[in-house]
Design a protein around this nucleic acid. Sequence first.
DNA 1: TGAAGTATGAAAATACTACTGATTGAGGAC
DNA 2: GTCCTCAATCAGTAGTATTTTCATACTTCA
Lengths: 226, 226
Amino acid sequence: MKILLIEDEPQLLSSMKAYLETEGYVVTTASTFRQGMVKTYDYDYDCVVVDIGLPDGNGLDLIRQLKTTHAQTGIIIVSAKDSLNDKLTGLELGSDDYLTKPFHLSELNARLKSVLRRRLFGGQNLIHFAKITINAHTHQVNIEGQPVILTEKEYQILLFFIANPDRLLTKGAIAEFVWGDHMDLANSHDFLYTHIKNLRKKLIEKGCPDYLRTRYGVGYLFSATP
Amino acid sequence: MKILLIEDEPQLLSSMKAYLETEGYVVTTASTFRQGMVKTYDYDYDCVVVDIGLPDGNGLDLIRQLKTTHAQTGIIIVSAKDSLNDKLTGLELGSDDYLTKPFHLSELNARLKSVLRRRLFGGQNLIHFAKITINAHTHQVNIEGQPVILTEKEYQILLFFIANPDRLLTKGAIAEFVWGDHMDLANSHDFLYTHIKNLRKKLIEKGCPDYLRTRYGVGYLFSATP
DNA sequence: TGAAGTATGAAAATACTACTGATTGAGGAC
DNA sequence: GTCCTCAATCAGTAGTATTTTCATACTTCA
């Protein structure tokens, strides 16, 4: 899960970054709209958190543009109490949620989760796929009622598969979803293999058919139908 | 596709070579201008990548000479940040692109692709020939929209044919394009026959007329008109 | 027709890709 | 500190695709 934070107060920015990273997100930062805009050219973020009160230019333009060029990216607006108008306009333009300064980081996290969940599964908290049930809130996974204990990486990989059933997912795409863009190219895919092996094993142990099919030289396909 | 790398840092040189070889190029190296110059006498490279900051002599001379003796060879200049003048002069002299150190290997690859594409097909990414469409970027080939799965060798042979339609191509020329100069002389042409057979078969299977005509004792002619 | 050149299928060799179990090391809990 | 878990790495093996070789059959052309 990749988040872009656009915020000009260095202290707030770094504490947001630190907090979200402990929550397992891959976080990129920018301190101006311009910078933030440039980063969205290079990369598809799952969610952009933007402080709309930045000095350079107009944050609403950024939102407008993001919504047209990256329609599927979530947007959360952060604003000072007095810029209510901007907030409303932002929501009209298609941002998914807003926060008023000052806010608790846990609050940001909650909004983020909700936006991302909405993005992936239309806001459902419980996600079903054949015998598998995922609670996106608690990260708990069940196979026919039986709980399966997954590590965070395993969970994220499974989530990505279930968010994209019956679609051929390249190893690069999976790595990008789980780890961000800093390792997909250079390194080997050993770490992916290992996590997929462990995930497969845990699912099958609980009586789950092996929905995961390997496409040699490309990636994986998660499907309940042969 | 044959590339000559002229660069004096052994480490950079070898990593460039290794990377480009995995990308399917045939790579020769030189660590001085003099050496590089000599190699261009022997051989026609598709592109020369030259670090203009080498200690011996003047790299600009090399570029000037290359442009007159091998007008169709692509040239990419590599330079340190501060030698902007050299870079500009190089471009004036006819180099096709430049890179400033340090650079990502993927960046070099992108420039290389672009230069070679420009050389072969006037910069087009999508190359059309009758029913065949080639995406030079992804190496995908389509016959009337239908994808054809080709191996890398088959792809390169097809690319060479389509880059030279209606021209009689000797087996030596094809081999040189695909494998470089290390095998065309000595060995038999069995491997070429095999790849051409497989390529033909795959194209015809997808409903493509057999554009490839054999010229007994010489080579092949790729043409849409009888 | 015969010799050289070309085509073809199948097998062998090679290179590449994926899977697995074991191990290491970092970080948190106690 | 010690114990634990998890992520990451490694080495070895299995699996698959591609390239090359080879034996044989077929064409072309003098």
